[in-house]
Design a protein around this nucleic acid. Structure first.
Lengths: 221, 221
DNA sequence: GTCTATAGTTCGATAGAC
DNA sequence: GTCTATCGAACTATAGAC
């Protein structure tokens, strides 16, 4: 669960706090999480959170940038490997975009990504600082994947590539946090916790949707 | 903005409170919204909220079921009209599914649906009562649209139809609350506030994705 | 770096007058 | 049905000992 740089192997209290903060913020949201609950989950005094991260906003930002940075480094590394080998398929690009979020924020208890819901909630928050945090954390990576999709799909203009990217991320992120909804609506034939099966379908769905946007051209009505 | 039954035309304080609750809950989330802020937005004393709706949870549920009920009545009415005329296209089904959420929760100040983000946050909440509220409010309608998609697309098994439905809703809902992200990522060529253009692209994207899921059959890898 | 103790604020909910 | 006033709990943040 922890995200540690190579070489630093011993868990420190400062990182224990980040781990606890990620779990509690993901479960209860920014406003719903309390510094008390995070301190208790980390097994430290509440005052230590303020010593290391100053405010609740500071702790949230440190937690968020640690996890999003780890996810996006993996995404871009996979993209770079593929691009070095030639023109990757749309399916490969989508897979490289989606899988790291599932794996990096994996929750062993529930089988999904605890972090996925937090990204959605943070990106649509009313506060400017939280929306800015998502922009700073994700826009550079997003720009590179939008460029890769444009290269893979002649006919995909910039507006269509942007919407297509946002549709793909939205479709998959909303399914990563297991809610039991797929199980219930399918009578048990689709299982929330089976993120591999969900991802395989998401790749098929997303690649076809992106190809259709490219084929439709700039004027859609 | 208010959702009133036909025949009852005068705004009452009880409904003013629901309107204010929807605005404040949508802007700040369940935990971030306070009964004080809702009372102030409604122009009534805080105690009146408890008189009419007992608790914060009771007010949230009344607000949520009013809006989701209004949206789903429109969705199902459109679906029934189409089915009475014969077999609707996948595009028509998707359009009937997505447009009512944009229109019913429309925010005249920002150009998007304030309610969309609230649905996502409520469906992924940790509390059972909030996830149950989403299930009660949306599952019956979802079941009918999944059945309609299955009828329109031979080859779409139940698991694929369920995931397809959830992908479509997730892709569109995440774009309905304007965050400025499409503008920024596209250099201004895609505009967040232009929900009609977003919806037109979403229909193309979703219909192609659903057709690909049907063509792929039950075994996807 | 980590703790205990607490200051100061805001919250949901209720009592009781009108 | 609507109000004012307030209670008790929970919150973020800080002071100060070790």
């Amino acid at each position: 669960m922890a995200v540690r740089a190579a070489g630093t192997s011993k868990p420190t209290a400062k990182e224990d706090i980040l781990d606890a903060a990620e779990a509690v913020f993901a479960a209860r949201g920014f406003e719903g999480a309390s510094m008390r609950a995070i301190a208790e989950a980390a097994g430290v005094a509440q005052a230590l959170l303020h010593y290391h991260y100053k405010t609740k906003e500071g702790l949230f930002e440190a937690m968020f940038t640690r996890r999003s940075g780890a996810i996006n480094r993996i995404r871009l590394a996979r993209l770079d490997v593929m691009l070095a080998r030639g023109q990757p398929s749309v399916e490969d690009i989508v897979e490289a975009l989606l899988r790291p979020t599932i794996e990096a924020g994996h929750d062993p208890r529930r089988g999904g990504s605890r972090f996925a819901g937090l990204i959605l909630a943070t990106g649509t928050a009313e506060d400017d600082w939280r929306r800015d945090l998502v922009a700073r954390s994700y826009d550079p990576m997003a720009g590179r994947f939008i460029a890769a999709l444009t290269a893979a799909l002649p006919g995909l203009d910039r507006a269509a590539a942007t919407w297509g990217y946002l549709f793909v991320v939205g479709a998959a992120l909303t399914q990563m946090a297991p809610t039991g909804r797929a199980d219930r609506l399918s009578g048990g034939e689709a299982r929330d916790e089976d993120t591999d099966a969900m991802l395989a379908r998401a790749v098929v769905f997303a690649a076809a949707g992106l190809r259709a946007l490219a084929a439709a051209g700039p004027d859609v009505h």
